[in-house]
Structure formats: C-alpha cells, structure tokens
C-alpha cells in the first residue's frame, strides 16, 4: 500500500509537471482569444465502455464533429461504477469548454442512492439533449402474455414467479420494473445483470421471463421474431414503425412512464461566451442530417432539445426521479443494505 501510494504520488507529480509545461502555452492563448474558442480538440467523456448505446451516440458525433466545431471531438471511455466514475471525472474537470460529457437520466439516479462524490444535477451544467428513449417491457415471443393486462393477471395468480432482468441495480430499467410492480400491485422479482447484453442473454435463454430495456437494444430481435414487446413506458406511442403498434402502459391504466434522455453536459462554471459557442456548435451538429441518418442506422432517433427547454427538463426530472425512487422503495432498499 505504501509502495503504491508513493507511486501514485510520483505519477501525480509527473502528471502535474507535464500539465504545467504543456498547459502554459495554449492557455495563455485561450485567454487572449476567447472568441476564437475552440482552439484545440474537445474531449468528450463517456462514462460507459466502448460498444454500448452511449458510446455509439458519442461515436456518431465524433464522426461529424470537425465540420461543426472546427476541431476534433475525442471520445474517452471511462467506464465502471454504474457510470459514476466517468461522471465524477466530468464534474471535476476544468470548466474551460474543452471537456464535455455524455450525461443521461440514468446518471441522475446514482446520487439519489447516496454514494457519489457529486450531486450531478447541480455539479454539471446542461448543454443540449441529443435523444430520448422510453423503456420497454420485453418477453420471449413464445410467452402466453400478449399485453400488460395478461401479464398483470398472471402475476397476481402466481406471485413472485415472474422474474425480470435489467442492466444493473438502481439503473433506469430497474426503476421501471419497480414502478410497474408498485403501480399494478404485483409481486415480480428483479434480477440484476452486469450490463444490457448479459440481461438480454438471460432473456433469450429463458432464464428470466421479462426484461426492461430500450428500443435500439431490442429492435433486431423483434424483427427476427424472437421476442415481443408488451408495453412502452412513455406518454404516447412511439413513432418508429416497428414500435408504433405497441400500446403504452398508460393505455392499460398504469402510470408507468420512464422516458430517459441522453444529453451533453459540462462541468459547472463555463464562461458565458464559451457556453454560448459550445451550444451553438453542438446544436448545428445534432441537427445535421448526416448525424441524424447515422443515428437512425444505429436504431436511435435524434430528439434535439435546445438549452432552455432542456435545462427545464433537467431540473424537473431530478425532482421527479427523487420522488419515484422514494415511492418505489428502491432508495430504502439500498440504504438498508448499507447499514
């Protein structure tokens, strides 16, 4: 431990020395030419491993960045800790406009369980929303249930028998499952997996009966007839033709709505000129038809929200999530485990 500490110290020492040497030059420039921002590549932190939907979104942006930002966008994956490690890194970064990051509604949940360094809704600054995806309830195509009512009826007759998989404890898709259980008054058990693909593997193998996930993850499996979607957790039906025939939970009289946004954020304290420039460039990038096309190829639909609307949503959703995790008892469950 002593050894590794001294190593950490020397590593940190070299790091700072290098930063000092490298940092002096360009920094002086940025101060004098603030209207010329950005003068160097912008780092985008993605708090998930390469290959997930967050990473895909970032890569699609990376692809068109140069022509809108005038600089390259460099995607850095800092995975782990249910997105908290990378998001902490983002919140702690220098607010100079050269570090931005992927922020989603899912990251807002983690501080509510009380174990992160920052409260992301206040430590980060909202920029723009890139897309928004509702959760969907998926079962194997061979299951006897064709809609939520069938499922609820079955679960009432066989309490505890239906197990649902999700990508991690306290993740958005776990919360949706608990919302359904509470709203319908049924007893279904959650099974945590390490990521979407592990949960999907268990669903396809019939080891869990249901899974909550996002439309892009499941689209190919619906097309091939392996799985079917029982309901969508949004206010209105989806517009995507593959999903437009699927009813919402609300149509069955259940108030289960979880519409997760995927957005860009920056550490708090950006200079107003930098923030304005950043938002202008990012907006033109997201509205670029080429970007839209790339996202659609990946099964994702761009749903742009500008700074004002998105900031409003940012604040409202934080309040709403706080309420939901209290009502579903997830926060208590996790707090009880910590004692």
């Amino acid at each position: 431990m002593i050894v590794s500490k001294s190593v950490v110290r020397s590593v940190v020492f070299y790091l700072f020395t290098t930063l000092l040497l490298v940092g002096c030059g360009p920094q002086a420039k940025t101060v004098t030419n603030i209207d010329k921002y950005p003068t160097k590549p912008i780092t985008m932190i993605v708090p998930y491993a390469a290959g997930g939907s967050a990473d895909m979104m970032a890569r699609a942006m990376e692809k068109v960045a140069q022509k809108h930002l005038g600089q390259a966008l460099v995607v850095t994956n800092i995975p782990g800790g249910a997105s908290t490690i990378g998001t902490n890194e983002l919140a702690g970064a220098k607010p100079d406009g050269y570090t931005i990051g992927y922020v989603s509604m899912g990251s807002f949940l983690q501080p509510l369980y009380g174990q992160t360094r920052y409260h992301y809704s206040t430590a980060l600054e909202p920029l723009v929303q890139v897309m928004s995806t509702p959760s969907v309830a998926v079962v194997l195509a061979g299951q006897p249930w064709n809609n939520v009512d069938d499922l609820v009826q079955y679960a009432k007759q066989h309490p505890g028998e239906i197990k649902f998989g999700h990508s991690g404890l306290g993740s958005g898709n776990h919360v949706v499952g608990e919302m359904l259980a509470k709203e319908a008054g049924i007893d279904i058990a959650q099974v945590p997996f390490r990521g979407e693909s592990e949960a999907l593997t268990a669903l396809l193998g019939g080891h869990v009966q249901m899974m909550f996930t996002n439309p892009p993850t499941i689209k190919e499996y619906i097309k091939s007839g392996k799985v079917k979607v029982l309901a969508v957790a949004s206010d209105q039906r989806m517009t995507d033709p593959e999903f437009s025939s699927i009813p919402t939970f609300k149509e069955s009289g259940l108030a289960v709505v979880y519409h997760a946004w995927h957005a860009l954020g920056a550490p708090k304290g950006l200079a107003p000129e930098v923030r304005a420039e950043l938002i202008k460039d990012l907006s033109s990038m997201i509205l670029d038809p080429e970007f839209k096309k790339n996202m659609e190829d990946l099964g994702m639909t761009v749903e742009y929200l500008g700074p004002q609307e998105f900031e409003k949503k940012w604040v409202e959703d934080n309040a709403r999530l706080t309420k939901i995790i209290k009502e579903t008892g997830i926060a208590e469950k996790i707090a009880a485990q910590k004692k």
Binding site: A49, G51, M56, R59, S197, E220, Y221, K223, D297, L298
Partner: peptide
C-alpha cells in the same frame, strides 16, 4: 467481442439474429 460489436455499429450494422 464487445469492441468488435461497436466496430459493426459504427457503420450502421446492428448484429443480431437477422445479420
């Protein structure tokens, strides 16, 4: 294979049972 998956997806090809 997860990183290979992103290699597919970045070109708009989503591997799955239909690939």
């Amino acid at each position: 294979s997860a990183i290979l998956l992103s290699g597919f997806m970045i070109h708009g090809i989503v591997p799955g049972p239909t690939l």
